[in-house]
Design a protein around this nucleic acid. Structure first.
Lengths: 154, 154
DNA sequence: CTCATCCTTTACGTTTACGTGAAGGTTAGG
DNA sequence: CCTAACCTTCACGTAAACGTAAAGGATGAG
């Protein structure tokens, strides 16, 4: 796959993709004529980058860190397969677990802060909902109610 | 409160605070000598801005949108107090609820995407943990306790 | 072989979100 | 009243994350 096709599929501009390569997030193969050639693995990587950027709001340097951890994971995996020394295999696995735990902690911290913001908002929401119910209770002739479904789940 | 005190308390630089004012996120009162004077309400607002910026990764323009919603909420609140027509009061409360729900939805969507990333990570983690347990089980069975800690290459 | 359409590198431009002085006014303590 | 420590408004500088155009090479259909 060449760059424009990848860009269309993933939803990035060619400039962004080249930029990501420039700062070391990516390293596609080259054709004889110096064209960049993207494997499905590269496309996956780009999707991952876009997800981290758009969904989680990570900076490209943070993403770089996560990808390096990912690369270390793959190196560990290869080394794990190459050896049969249980002590080394155990150490490799534990290292992988530590890396993943760091990633999870960072994601979880983000979630916790977002949750705090939600619960603040929910307090305000419930106050308003209570107002509406008061009014409705006062107006016995009407048959309306407030949708409280959103206040149930977190 | 003057700008430096606020900055220290909230954890922002004076430059950032002035910048937020410049782009319309804030409008503190002024003293006779043109000094900015911050009320506790302004400090709250700054905390809110910092939270959205750091925790949720919102851009300042997105934050501006949220704050406008917040301002509309306050206008509604004032209007709510000023009237006693139950129909209008009900409409105002419902409008406020709708605004808050939009905020919550946007936060929740972010959380969901982060959660997806966490569960991906957890799957990988569990696989590695299983490896470690396998190894430990094997070691117990064979009763081999050679200390190779210093011979491994990480 | 030709032409259109890709692709390449190089390089300057842009927006966001500030940092960092410069030049000067304000305020509180001694 | 003086001085240090605030504050003010310019105004230029910067890093990140690209946009955009120029100048030229590669590739595929006809």
């Amino acid at each position: 796959m060449r760059i424009q096709e990848v860009a269309a599929e993933v939803g990035l501009t060619t400039r962004s993709i080249r930029y990501y390569e420039e700062i070391g997030l990516l390293a596609p193969a080259r054709s004889g004529g110096d064209y960049r050639l993207y494997e499905s693995e590269d496309v996956e990587r780009l999707r991952f980058i876009k997800g981290l950027r758009d969904d989680a709001g990570f900076s490209l340097s943070e993403i770089g860190q996560l990808l390096e951890d990912e690369a270390a994971r793959l190196r560990n995996k290869a080394r794990f397969k190459a050896t049969d020394d249980p002590t080394e295999r155990r150490a490799l696995a534990l290292d992988g677990i530590a890396r993943i735990d760091r990633q999870i902690d960072s994601l979880r911290a983000k979630i916790e802060r977002l949750r705090g913001m939600i619960s603040d908002a929910r307090v305000r929401r419930d106050k308003l909902a209570a107002r509406v119910e008061e009014i409705d209770a006062g107006e016995r002739r009407t048959h309306v109610h407030v949708d409280r479904a959103r206040t149930d789940a977190s």
